[in-house]
Design a protein around this nucleic acid. Structure first.
Lengths: 222, 222
DNA sequence: CCCGTTCTTGACCAATCGGTCCAGCTCGTC
DNA sequence: GACGAGCTGGACCGATTGGTCAAGAACGGG
Protein backbone atom coordinates (compact mmCIF):
# COMPACT_ATOMS: atom_id res chain seq x y z
CA UNK A 1 0.00 0.00 0.00
CA UNK A 2 2.85 2.36 0.74
CA UNK A 3 4.01 2.32 -2.87
CA UNK A 4 1.60 5.07 -3.75
CA UNK A 5 3.19 7.55 -1.40
CA UNK A 6 6.86 6.86 -1.97
CA UNK A 7 9.20 9.66 -2.90
CA UNK A 8 9.25 9.89 -6.71
CA UNK A 9 12.63 11.62 -6.82
CA UNK A 10 14.49 8.42 -6.00
CA UNK A 11 13.26 6.82 -9.20
CA UNK A 12 15.27 6.36 -12.38
CA UNK A 13 12.25 6.82 -14.64
CA UNK A 14 9.02 8.62 -13.97
CA UNK A 15 5.73 6.73 -14.38
CA UNK A 16 2.50 8.07 -15.66
CA UNK A 17 0.89 10.20 -12.97
CA UNK A 18 -2.57 9.48 -11.62
CA UNK A 19 -5.45 11.48 -12.89
CA UNK A 20 -7.27 11.40 -9.57
CA UNK A 21 -6.65 12.52 -6.02
CA UNK A 22 -6.64 9.60 -3.63
CA UNK A 23 -8.23 11.50 -0.76
CA UNK A 24 -10.89 12.84 -3.05
CA UNK A 25 -11.74 9.31 -4.19
CA UNK A 26 -11.96 8.16 -0.59
CA UNK A 27 -14.28 11.01 0.18
CA UNK A 28 -16.60 10.18 -2.70
CA UNK A 29 -16.52 6.53 -1.77
CA UNK A 30 -17.41 7.49 1.76
CA UNK A 31 -20.54 9.23 0.58
CA UNK A 32 -21.49 6.32 -1.64
CA UNK A 33 -21.02 3.76 1.15
CA UNK A 34 -22.81 5.99 3.63
CA UNK A 35 -25.81 6.02 1.38
CA UNK A 36 -26.21 2.37 0.54
CA UNK A 37 -23.94 0.50 2.92
CA UNK A 38 -21.17 -1.95 2.09
CA UNK A 39 -23.12 -4.85 0.64
CA UNK A 40 -25.59 -2.48 -0.99
CA UNK A 41 -22.97 -0.57 -2.94
CA UNK A 42 -21.76 -2.37 -6.04
CA UNK A 43 -18.39 -1.86 -7.63
CA UNK A 44 -20.03 -0.27 -10.64
CA UNK A 45 -21.85 2.21 -8.45
CA UNK A 46 -18.58 2.93 -6.73
CA UNK A 47 -16.78 3.49 -10.02
CA UNK A 48 -19.44 5.89 -11.17
CA UNK A 49 -19.35 7.74 -7.86
CA UNK A 50 -15.59 8.06 -7.78
CA UNK A 51 -15.15 8.54 -11.51
CA UNK A 52 -12.24 6.15 -11.83
CA UNK A 53 -11.92 3.00 -13.84
CA UNK A 54 -12.16 -0.54 -12.55
CA UNK A 55 -8.51 -1.36 -12.65
CA UNK A 56 -7.51 2.03 -11.29
CA UNK A 57 -9.56 1.42 -8.18
CA UNK A 58 -8.14 -2.04 -7.90
CA UNK A 59 -4.43 -1.22 -8.04
CA UNK A 60 -4.78 1.99 -6.06
CA UNK A 61 -6.68 0.46 -3.14
CA UNK A 62 -6.80 -3.28 -3.62
CA UNK A 63 -10.50 -3.91 -3.93
CA UNK A 64 -13.93 -3.01 -2.68
CA UNK A 65 -13.34 -4.03 0.91
CA UNK A 66 -10.06 -2.19 1.16
CA UNK A 67 -11.52 1.00 -0.26
CA UNK A 68 -14.39 0.68 2.16
CA UNK A 69 -12.02 0.37 5.08
CA UNK A 70 -10.15 3.45 3.96
CA UNK A 71 -13.41 5.38 3.72
CA UNK A 72 -14.68 3.99 6.99
CA UNK A 73 -11.47 4.73 8.87
CA UNK A 74 -11.44 8.21 7.39
CA UNK A 75 -14.99 8.84 8.56
CA UNK A 76 -14.21 7.43 11.98
CA UNK A 77 -11.14 9.62 12.35
CA UNK A 78 -13.17 12.64 11.39
CA UNK A 79 -15.86 11.81 13.91
CA UNK A 80 -13.27 11.43 16.65
CA UNK A 81 -11.60 14.63 15.60
CA UNK A 82 -14.90 16.46 15.87
CA UNK A 83 -15.11 15.38 19.49
CA UNK A 84 -11.53 16.49 20.10
CA UNK A 85 -12.64 20.03 19.46
CA UNK A 86 -15.14 19.57 22.25
CA UNK A 87 -12.33 18.57 24.51
CA UNK A 88 -10.08 21.48 23.70
CA UNK A 89 -12.51 24.31 23.12
CA UNK A 90 -12.30 27.74 24.65
CA UNK A 91 -15.59 28.36 26.35
CA UNK A 92 -17.02 26.52 29.33
CA UNK A 93 -17.03 22.69 29.15
CA UNK A 94 -20.79 22.26 29.35
CA UNK A 95 -21.28 24.79 26.61
CA UNK A 96 -18.86 22.82 24.47
CA UNK A 97 -20.75 19.60 25.02
CA UNK A 98 -24.01 21.29 24.27
CA UNK A 99 -22.62 22.74 21.09
CA UNK A 100 -21.55 19.27 20.01
CA UNK A 101 -25.04 17.89 20.65
CA UNK A 102 -26.59 20.73 18.69
CA UNK A 103 -24.12 20.18 15.88
CA UNK A 104 -24.99 16.50 15.63
CA UNK A 105 -28.67 17.33 15.61
CA UNK A 106 -28.23 19.85 12.84
CA UNK A 107 -26.02 17.63 10.73
CA UNK A 108 -28.13 14.52 11.01
CA UNK A 109 -31.47 16.27 10.99
CA UNK A 110 -31.43 17.29 7.37
CA UNK A 111 -34.20 15.73 5.32
CA UNK A 112 -31.78 14.14 2.88
CA UNK A 113 -29.24 13.13 5.52
CA UNK A 114 -28.20 9.50 5.79
CA UNK A 115 -26.51 8.13 8.91
CA UNK A 116 -22.78 8.66 9.03
CA UNK A 117 -20.63 5.92 7.60
CA UNK A 118 -19.37 5.31 11.10
CA UNK A 119 -22.83 4.46 12.36
CA UNK A 120 -23.75 2.59 9.21
CA UNK A 121 -20.65 0.43 9.28
CA UNK A 122 -21.02 -0.21 12.99
CA UNK A 123 -24.54 -1.52 12.52
CA UNK A 124 -23.96 -3.41 9.31
CA UNK A 125 -20.57 -4.99 9.83
CA UNK A 126 -19.15 -4.78 13.30
CA UNK A 127 -20.81 -7.99 14.45
CA UNK A 128 -19.04 -9.99 11.76
CA UNK A 129 -15.93 -8.01 10.86
CA UNK A 130 -13.37 -7.84 13.69
CA UNK A 131 -11.49 -4.99 12.01
CA UNK A 132 -14.58 -2.81 11.85
CA UNK A 133 -15.59 -3.88 15.32
CA UNK A 134 -12.30 -2.90 16.89
CA UNK A 135 -12.22 0.42 15.06
CA UNK A 136 -15.72 1.18 16.30
CA UNK A 137 -14.85 0.12 19.82
CA UNK A 138 -11.71 2.24 19.85
CA UNK A 139 -13.48 5.29 18.46
CA UNK A 140 -16.26 4.83 20.95
CA UNK A 141 -13.75 4.59 23.73
CA UNK A 142 -11.82 7.67 22.68
CA UNK A 143 -14.96 9.73 22.30
CA UNK A 144 -16.23 8.59 25.65
CA UNK A 145 -13.02 9.64 27.29
CA UNK A 146 -13.12 13.03 25.64
CA UNK A 147 -16.59 13.69 26.92
CA UNK A 148 -15.66 12.36 30.32
CA UNK A 149 -12.57 14.56 30.49
CA UNK A 150 -14.66 17.52 29.46
CA UNK A 151 -17.08 16.83 32.26
CA UNK A 152 -14.31 16.29 34.75
CA UNK A 153 -12.89 19.63 33.72
CA UNK A 154 -16.27 21.22 34.31
CA UNK A 155 -16.36 19.60 37.72
CA UNK A 156 -12.97 21.09 38.48
CA UNK A 157 -14.32 24.48 37.48
CA UNK A 158 -17.28 23.97 39.76
CA UNK A 159 -19.77 24.05 36.93
CA UNK A 160 -20.90 20.48 37.44
CA UNK A 161 -21.68 18.73 40.69
CA UNK A 162 -18.51 17.00 41.88
CA UNK A 163 -20.52 13.91 42.79
CA UNK A 164 -21.42 13.15 39.18
CA UNK A 165 -19.79 10.16 37.49
CA UNK A 166 -17.82 11.70 34.62
CA UNK A 167 -17.03 8.38 32.97
CA UNK A 168 -20.65 7.26 32.93
CA UNK A 169 -21.73 10.56 31.49
CA UNK A 170 -19.04 10.26 28.83
CA UNK A 171 -20.24 6.92 27.50
CA UNK A 172 -23.80 8.09 27.95
CA UNK A 173 -23.28 11.01 25.58
CA UNK A 174 -21.76 8.67 23.01
CA UNK A 175 -24.87 6.54 23.16
CA UNK A 176 -27.16 9.53 22.87
CA UNK A 177 -25.28 10.81 19.84
CA UNK A 178 -25.32 7.37 18.26
CA UNK A 179 -29.07 7.28 18.80
CA UNK A 180 -29.48 10.70 17.29
CA UNK A 181 -27.48 9.68 14.24
CA UNK A 182 -29.57 6.58 13.76
CA UNK A 183 -32.85 8.42 14.22
CA UNK A 184 -31.73 11.23 11.96
CA UNK A 185 -30.94 8.76 9.20
CA UNK A 186 -34.38 7.29 9.69
CA UNK A 187 -36.00 10.60 8.90
CA UNK A 188 -36.59 12.13 12.31
CA UNK A 189 -36.69 15.92 11.81
CA UNK A 190 -34.04 18.29 13.01
CA UNK A 191 -36.17 19.94 15.68
CA UNK A 192 -36.88 16.60 17.32
CA UNK A 193 -33.22 15.68 17.25
CA UNK A 194 -32.35 18.99 18.81
CA UNK A 195 -34.92 18.40 21.50
CA UNK A 196 -33.38 15.01 22.22
CA UNK A 197 -29.91 16.47 22.48
CA UNK A 198 -30.92 19.23 24.82
CA UNK A 199 -32.98 16.85 26.93
CA UNK A 200 -29.99 14.56 27.25
CA UNK A 201 -28.05 17.45 28.74
CA UNK A 202 -30.50 17.40 31.61
CA UNK A 203 -28.75 14.33 32.94
CA UNK A 204 -25.77 16.48 33.84
CA UNK A 205 -26.07 17.90 37.36
CA UNK A 206 -25.16 21.49 36.60
CA UNK A 207 -24.32 23.72 39.56
CA UNK A 208 -25.61 27.26 39.95
CA UNK A 209 -22.26 28.52 38.75
CA UNK A 210 -22.49 26.28 35.72
CA UNK A 211 -25.99 27.51 34.94
CA UNK A 212 -24.58 31.00 34.77
CA UNK A 213 -21.93 29.99 32.26
CA UNK A 214 -24.50 28.12 30.22
CA UNK A 215 -26.84 29.97 27.91
CA UNK A 216 -24.02 31.49 25.91
CA UNK A 217 -22.65 30.61 22.50
CA UNK A 218 -25.95 29.48 21.10
CA UNK A 219 -24.80 29.73 17.50
CA UNK A 220 -27.10 29.94 14.50
CA UNK A 221 -28.57 26.81 13.00
CA UNK A 222 -31.07 27.87 10.35
CA UNK B 1 -51.27 -12.35 0.00
CA UNK B 2 -54.54 -13.30 1.68
CA UNK B 3 -54.73 -16.56 -0.23
CA UNK B 4 -52.53 -18.28 2.28
CA UNK B 5 -54.86 -17.63 5.16
CA UNK B 6 -58.25 -18.23 3.54
CA UNK B 7 -60.68 -20.64 5.06
CA UNK B 8 -59.94 -24.05 3.58
CA UNK B 9 -63.44 -25.37 4.29
CA UNK B 10 -64.91 -23.34 1.45
CA UNK B 11 -62.84 -25.25 -1.10
CA UNK B 12 -64.08 -28.07 -3.25
CA UNK B 13 -60.79 -29.94 -3.11
CA UNK B 14 -58.09 -29.78 -0.50
CA UNK B 15 -54.51 -29.03 -1.63
CA UNK B 16 -51.33 -30.40 -0.23
CA UNK B 17 -50.65 -28.76 3.14
CA UNK B 18 -47.50 -26.80 3.80
CA UNK B 19 -44.69 -28.51 5.59
CA UNK B 20 -43.65 -25.33 7.37
CA UNK B 21 -45.14 -22.83 9.78
CA UNK B 22 -45.28 -19.38 8.26
CA UNK B 23 -44.62 -17.55 11.52
CA UNK B 24 -41.72 -19.83 12.24
CA UNK B 25 -40.20 -19.06 8.84
CA UNK B 26 -40.63 -15.34 9.44
CA UNK B 27 -38.90 -15.69 12.75
CA UNK B 28 -35.93 -17.50 11.26
CA UNK B 29 -35.76 -15.00 8.45
CA UNK B 30 -35.78 -12.25 11.01
CA UNK B 31 -32.71 -13.67 12.68
CA UNK B 32 -30.94 -14.11 9.37
CA UNK B 33 -31.69 -10.57 8.25
CA UNK B 34 -30.77 -9.17 11.64
CA UNK B 35 -27.37 -10.79 11.32
CA UNK B 36 -26.35 -9.75 7.84
CA UNK B 37 -28.84 -7.09 6.77
CA UNK B 38 -31.02 -7.05 3.69
CA UNK B 39 -28.44 -6.67 0.93
CA UNK B 40 -26.01 -8.89 2.82
CA UNK B 41 -28.37 -11.85 3.07
CA UNK B 42 -28.68 -13.86 -0.12
CA UNK B 43 -31.66 -15.95 -1.07
CA UNK B 44 -29.63 -19.10 -0.65
CA UNK B 45 -28.64 -18.10 2.86
CA UNK B 46 -32.25 -17.37 3.57
CA UNK B 47 -33.36 -20.75 2.25
CA UNK B 48 -30.84 -22.52 4.40
CA UNK B 49 -31.84 -20.51 7.46
CA UNK B 50 -35.55 -21.09 6.99
CA UNK B 51 -35.26 -24.64 5.71
CA UNK B 52 -37.70 -24.19 2.88
CA UNK B 53 -37.20 -24.52 -0.85
CA UNK B 54 -36.80 -21.73 -3.33
CA UNK B 55 -40.22 -21.96 -4.85
CA UNK B 56 -41.91 -22.42 -1.50
CA UNK B 57 -40.48 -19.14 -0.28
CA UNK B 58 -41.49 -17.50 -3.49
CA UNK B 59 -45.14 -18.48 -3.58
CA UNK B 60 -45.63 -18.20 0.16
CA UNK B 61 -44.21 -14.69 0.48
CA UNK B 62 -43.54 -13.33 -2.98
CA UNK B 63 -39.81 -12.82 -2.89
CA UNK B 64 -36.86 -11.68 -0.85
CA UNK B 65 -38.06 -8.16 -0.31
CA UNK B 66 -41.54 -9.22 0.73
CA UNK B 67 -40.22 -11.76 3.21
CA UNK B 68 -37.92 -9.13 4.57
CA UNK B 69 -40.79 -6.73 5.09
CA UNK B 70 -42.77 -9.40 6.91
CA UNK B 71 -39.81 -10.08 9.17
CA UNK B 72 -39.09 -6.40 9.65
CA UNK B 73 -42.72 -5.54 10.42
CA UNK B 74 -42.87 -8.46 12.82
CA UNK B 75 -39.77 -7.26 14.64
CA UNK B 76 -41.08 -3.71 14.74
CA UNK B 77 -44.42 -4.83 16.14
CA UNK B 78 -42.63 -6.82 18.81
CA UNK B 79 -40.46 -3.86 19.75
CA UNK B 80 -43.51 -1.65 20.06
CA UNK B 81 -45.32 -4.30 22.05
CA UNK B 82 -42.42 -4.46 24.46
CA UNK B 83 -42.88 -0.78 25.13
CA UNK B 84 -46.61 -1.23 25.60
CA UNK B 85 -45.87 -3.32 28.63
CA UNK B 86 -44.00 -0.33 30.00
CA UNK B 87 -47.08 1.75 29.51
CA UNK B 88 -49.45 -0.62 31.22
CA UNK B 89 -47.33 -2.14 33.93
CA UNK B 90 -48.33 -2.45 37.54
CA UNK B 91 -45.62 -0.80 39.56
CA UNK B 92 -44.63 2.84 39.56
CA UNK B 93 -44.08 4.46 36.13
CA UNK B 94 -40.43 5.35 36.66
CA UNK B 95 -39.68 1.83 37.78
CA UNK B 96 -41.30 0.57 34.59
CA UNK B 97 -39.17 2.82 32.43
CA UNK B 98 -36.08 1.81 34.28
CA UNK B 99 -36.92 -1.84 33.87
CA UNK B 100 -37.27 -1.30 30.14
CA UNK B 101 -33.86 0.36 29.98
CA UNK B 102 -32.31 -2.47 31.93
CA UNK B 103 -34.01 -4.99 29.69
CA UNK B 104 -32.63 -3.36 26.56
CA UNK B 105 -29.16 -3.27 28.10
CA UNK B 106 -29.33 -6.95 28.97
CA UNK B 107 -30.71 -8.06 25.63
CA UNK B 108 -28.32 -6.06 23.50
CA UNK B 109 -25.31 -6.46 25.74
CA UNK B 110 -24.73 -10.10 25.04
CA UNK B 111 -21.40 -10.81 23.38
CA UNK B 112 -23.01 -12.51 20.41
CA UNK B 113 -25.89 -10.04 20.12
CA UNK B 114 -26.50 -8.27 16.84
CA UNK B 115 -28.60 -5.14 16.64
CA UNK B 116 -32.33 -5.73 16.35
CA UNK B 117 -33.72 -5.99 12.86
CA UNK B 118 -35.63 -2.82 13.60
CA UNK B 119 -32.43 -0.86 14.15
CA UNK B 120 -30.62 -2.59 11.33
CA UNK B 121 -33.36 -1.95 8.81
CA UNK B 122 -33.73 1.64 9.95
CA UNK B 123 -30.05 2.32 9.35
CA UNK B 124 -29.67 0.32 6.17
CA UNK B 125 -32.87 1.06 4.30
CA UNK B 126 -35.02 3.81 5.70
CA UNK B 127 -33.25 6.52 3.76
CA UNK B 128 -34.10 4.87 0.45
CA UNK B 129 -37.16 2.77 1.11
CA UNK B 130 -40.27 4.80 1.95
CA UNK B 131 -42.10 1.76 3.28
CA UNK B 132 -39.36 1.02 5.79
CA UNK B 133 -39.02 4.69 6.59
CA UNK B 134 -42.66 5.15 7.42
CA UNK B 135 -42.75 1.99 9.50
CA UNK B 136 -39.74 3.18 11.45
CA UNK B 137 -41.21 6.64 11.89
CA UNK B 138 -44.52 5.25 13.06
CA UNK B 139 -42.92 2.84 15.50
CA UNK B 140 -40.68 5.59 16.80
CA UNK B 141 -43.69 7.82 17.26
CA UNK B 142 -45.74 5.20 19.07
CA UNK B 143 -42.88 4.31 21.40
CA UNK B 144 -42.23 7.94 22.14
CA UNK B 145 -45.84 8.44 23.08
CA UNK B 146 -45.82 5.42 25.33
CA UNK B 147 -42.83 6.70 27.22
CA UNK B 148 -44.29 10.20 27.33
CA UNK B 149 -47.60 8.90 28.65
CA UNK B 150 -45.74 6.87 31.23
CA UNK B 151 -43.92 9.96 32.40
CA UNK B 152 -47.08 12.03 32.40
CA UNK B 153 -48.66 9.38 34.56
CA UNK B 154 -45.73 9.59 36.93
CA UNK B 155 -46.16 13.33 37.03
CA UNK B 156 -49.80 12.86 37.92
CA UNK B 157 -48.74 10.58 40.74
CA UNK B 158 -46.30 13.21 41.95
CA UNK B 159 -43.28 11.00 41.31
CA UNK B 160 -41.83 13.29 38.66
CA UNK B 161 -41.58 17.06 38.74
CA UNK B 162 -44.66 18.49 37.05
CA UNK B 163 -42.49 20.99 35.18
CA UNK B 164 -40.74 18.31 33.14
CA UNK B 165 -41.55 18.01 29.44
CA UNK B 166 -43.03 14.53 29.11
CA UNK B 167 -43.01 14.53 25.31
CA UNK B 168 -39.36 15.51 25.10
CA UNK B 169 -38.43 12.83 27.58
CA UNK B 170 -40.42 10.29 25.57
CA UNK B 171 -38.53 10.86 22.34
CA UNK B 172 -35.34 11.16 24.33
CA UNK B 173 -35.71 7.66 25.73
CA UNK B 174 -36.32 6.32 22.25
CA UNK B 175 -33.06 7.86 21.12
CA UNK B 176 -31.17 6.50 24.10
CA UNK B 177 -32.51 3.01 23.49
CA UNK B 178 -31.67 3.25 19.82
CA UNK B 179 -28.16 4.26 20.76
CA UNK B 180 -27.87 1.39 23.19
CA UNK B 181 -29.03 -1.06 20.54
CA UNK B 182 -26.48 0.25 18.07
CA UNK B 183 -23.66 0.23 20.59
CA UNK B 184 -24.62 -3.22 21.82
CA UNK B 185 -24.47 -4.58 18.29
CA UNK B 186 -21.05 -3.01 17.96
CA UNK B 187 -19.74 -5.04 20.87
CA UNK B 188 -20.12 -2.72 23.83
CA UNK B 189 -20.42 -4.91 26.93
CA UNK B 190 -23.54 -5.31 28.96
CA UNK B 191 -22.29 -3.47 32.01
CA UNK B 192 -21.51 -0.38 29.96
CA UNK B 193 -24.92 -0.49 28.35
CA UNK B 194 -26.52 -0.80 31.74
CA UNK B 195 -24.57 2.17 32.94
CA UNK B 196 -25.75 4.18 29.96
CA UNK B 197 -29.36 3.27 30.58
CA UNK B 198 -29.23 4.16 34.24
CA UNK B 199 -27.39 7.38 33.53
CA UNK B 200 -30.06 8.36 31.02
CA UNK B 201 -32.63 8.05 33.77
CA UNK B 202 -30.88 10.91 35.52
CA UNK B 203 -32.47 13.26 33.02
CA UNK B 204 -35.81 12.65 34.65
CA UNK B 205 -36.47 15.09 37.50
CA UNK B 206 -37.67 12.63 40.11
CA UNK B 207 -39.41 14.06 43.17
CA UNK B 208 -38.72 12.90 46.71
CA UNK B 209 -41.86 10.80 46.56
CA UNK B 210 -40.67 9.26 43.30
CA UNK B 211 -37.31 8.46 44.80
CA UNK B 212 -39.08 6.47 47.48
CA UNK B 213 -40.96 4.41 44.92
CA UNK B 214 -37.81 3.85 42.95
CA UNK B 215 -35.31 1.30 44.06
CA UNK B 216 -37.80 -1.55 43.92
CA UNK B 217 -38.30 -4.25 41.33
CA UNK B 218 -34.65 -4.52 40.46
CA UNK B 219 -35.08 -7.89 38.80
CA UNK B 220 -32.31 -10.36 38.18
CA UNK B 221 -30.09 -10.04 35.14
CA UNK B 222 -27.28 -12.53 35.43
C1' DC C 1 13.92 9.99 -29.01
C1' DC C 2 13.82 5.87 -26.84
C1' DC C 3 13.39 3.78 -22.33
C1' DG C 4 11.05 1.74 -18.28
C1' DT C 5 7.46 2.41 -15.19
C1' DT C 6 2.88 3.10 -13.97
C1' DC C 7 -1.72 4.41 -15.13
C1' DT C 8 -5.87 3.78 -18.02
C1' DT C 9 -9.16 1.41 -20.82
C1' DG C 10 -12.32 -2.03 -22.05
C1' DA C 11 -12.85 -6.77 -22.74
C1' DC C 12 -13.34 -10.68 -20.15
C1' DC C 13 -13.98 -14.13 -16.22
C1' DA C 14 -16.22 -17.45 -12.98
C1' DA C 15 -19.38 -17.06 -9.29
C1' DT C 16 -23.42 -15.60 -7.50
C1' DC C 17 -27.48 -12.85 -7.54
C1' DG C 18 -32.87 -12.96 -7.33
C1' DG C 19 -36.32 -15.11 -9.80
C1' DT C 20 -38.85 -18.61 -12.89
C1' DC C 21 -40.29 -22.96 -14.94
C1' DC C 22 -41.82 -27.54 -14.71
C1' DA C 23 -42.37 -32.29 -13.36
C1' DG C 24 -43.86 -34.76 -9.51
C1' DC C 25 -45.89 -35.18 -5.05
C1' DT C 26 -49.61 -35.07 -1.43
C1' DC C 27 -53.58 -33.99 0.08
C1' DG C 28 -59.29 -33.83 0.78
C1' DT C 29 -63.25 -34.43 -1.96
C1' DC C 30 -66.36 -36.69 -4.74
C1' DG D 1 -59.55 -44.41 -6.45
C1' DA D 2 -59.38 -40.84 -9.72
C1' DC D 3 -59.43 -35.84 -9.60
C1' DG D 4 -57.68 -31.10 -9.12
C1' DA D 5 -55.97 -28.29 -5.94
C1' DG D 6 -51.60 -26.35 -4.10
C1' DC D 7 -46.97 -27.53 -2.27
C1' DT D 8 -42.20 -29.21 -3.22
C1' DG D 9 -37.66 -29.79 -5.24
C1' DG D 10 -34.33 -29.12 -8.64
C1' DA D 11 -33.00 -27.57 -13.05
C1' DC D 12 -32.56 -23.44 -15.19
C1' DC D 13 -32.50 -18.30 -16.51
C1' DG D 14 -30.48 -13.70 -17.63
C1' DA D 15 -28.40 -10.13 -15.00
C1' DT D 16 -25.11 -8.60 -11.97
C1' DT D 17 -21.52 -9.44 -8.73
C1' DG D 18 -16.33 -8.58 -7.48
C1' DG D 19 -12.21 -9.34 -9.69
C1' DT D 20 -8.58 -10.13 -13.58
C1' DC D 21 -6.07 -9.71 -17.96
C1' DA D 22 -3.74 -7.71 -21.72
C1' DA D 23 -2.86 -3.88 -24.74
C1' DG D 24 -1.93 0.89 -25.04
C1' DA D 25 -1.16 5.73 -23.28
C1' DA D 26 1.39 9.22 -20.57
C1' DC D 27 5.11 10.60 -18.20
C1' DG D 28 10.39 12.13 -16.90
C1' DG D 29 15.13 10.45 -17.13
C1' DG D 30 18.71 8.78 -19.95
Amino acid sequence: MGATTEDPKQRTTMPRPRTFDEDDVIDRARKAFAETGFAGTSLDTLLEATGLARQSLYNAFGGKKELFMRAFLSDTAEAVEAVESVRHGEDSPITRIRRQLVKVAVEHGEAKAAPSLFTKAAVELSSHDPEVASAVATAFDVMSRHYAACIAEAQGAGEIDAGADADSLGTYFCAVIEGMSTLGGAGVPRATLLDIGLTSLTAVPVTDLGREHLGTGEGDWS
